[in-house]
Design a protein around this nucleic acid. Sequence first.
RNA 1: GUCCCCAUCGUCUAGCCUGGUUCAGGACAUCGCCCUUUCACGGCGACGGCGCCAGUUCAAAUCUGGCUGGGGACGCCA
Length: 433
Amino acid sequence: MVKVRFAPSPTGYLHIGGARTCLFNWLYARHTGGKFILRIEDTDIARSKKEYLDEILESIKWLGMDFDEIYYQSKRFDLYREYAQKLIDAGRAYKKDDAIFFKYDFANVEIDDLIRGKIVFNELPKEEEVIIKKDGTPTYNFSCCIDDALMEMSLVIRGEDHISNTPKQILMYKALGFKIPQYAHVPLIMSEEGGRMSKRYGATSIREYKQEGYLAQAIANYLLLLSWSPGGNREIITLNEAKDIFEIKKVNKTAAAFSMDKLNWINGEYIKKKSPDEYIALIEEYLKDKDFVPESTDKDYLRKVLLLFKDRLSKLSDLFVRARFCFYDDYTYDEDTKEILDRNLSKEIKVLADKLSGITNFNKEETEKEFREVAASLGLKPKDLVHPTRVALSGKKVGPGLFESMEVLGKEKVVSRLNRLIDYWDKGTDANG
RNA sequence: GUCCCCAUCGUCUAGCCUGGUUCAGGACAUCGCCCUUUCACGGCGACGGCGCCAGUUCAAAUCUGGCUGGGGACGCCA
């Protein structure tokens, strides 16, 4: 019977690395038709928090995973003490200062890792180990050994940082007469700089990425690509598709550096793949607690604005700077538009504003037609007017298609914003008018 | 310091197990061109790699050893 587990400690939010370990476990279980157990390692009572536990559970679900059983180590303290007593009775452990120490009887320990092959340990850094702390709670290696054995894990898939714990646990298994599971140590995820993933170099927890507007499927997809590959030059793959072809033996041995650029690209791909309705629903959910769109905004207007940006977002939070001009008039002209604004086209823009204000059916076809005529009549190329017009309307050098934008903003706003730029040129008034 | 793991473009990877089909394929990023209404999107293209040294072999990215480099573990944290 295939049985694996993910064993997070609720002393922090679900980490990127933990999420991927969870993903590999889940994939393995679902691929083989085995069981996936979630084991909460909350033996450190002081550092474990309900808030973290809730978030971990929520993130696992959000990423698209489910589990078959859940256990809490904090509810099993008696069990660990019972087994510690067995070790004392067998002469393999002893009590000292209220703590219980396990005595390793070291012989070479060999593990046959599913990913790395044979790993041989010729020595151990210590001769004994605390297994029950003086407050009566178990230490990690001990509770881990007891639970993996009692819960009958067939395979332990965990991070590479646990390799050195493995011989210790195996020696405990042997002392207790337990059957030793198989192991698969997955490589660690490194920061973009190459070192350890830490808060100093950006987001490390799943919830932070969610807050930034990354989609669950995109994160799961990206994480899978770190140390595993679906083959066939495939980059985009859903969890559901991955579970059909996932094999733990195909996981790489090499640690992988996290790349925000690639995550952004994948996330953008997933946003593009959404249907307009799915996309709108997604953003409305995302924007719920963000206080970005003014209360009074018309539903239909909001929808049109959001659709304008759909295929050019890499993450939902991009909207905050890119689409702000659609909801607020108090924007300023970006620093990088200076080059465009240096050319004073006040008279030309005035002509444009007058022409546009005469349009009755203010849609993208009409505005474009009128716009091109104005440019031609002034002897300008369309692009000479496009740039300053975009700056006038949005304060930005880049954005969605100009005429689509005009149609969405509507005649009144377009004309008044054009006039605002004219005033900026003529009277030198602050752009923050 | 001791023990352990790892090593293909800047980054993620395919290939390595079963040596020749690979003067190493894809993706991200970067750069260029095209499209065009700027950016983006899209299309096309460029740049760029088997860490080093030995060995085995007719033949090595692929097998072996050493070196170098990177990472991890050495808590009454997990």
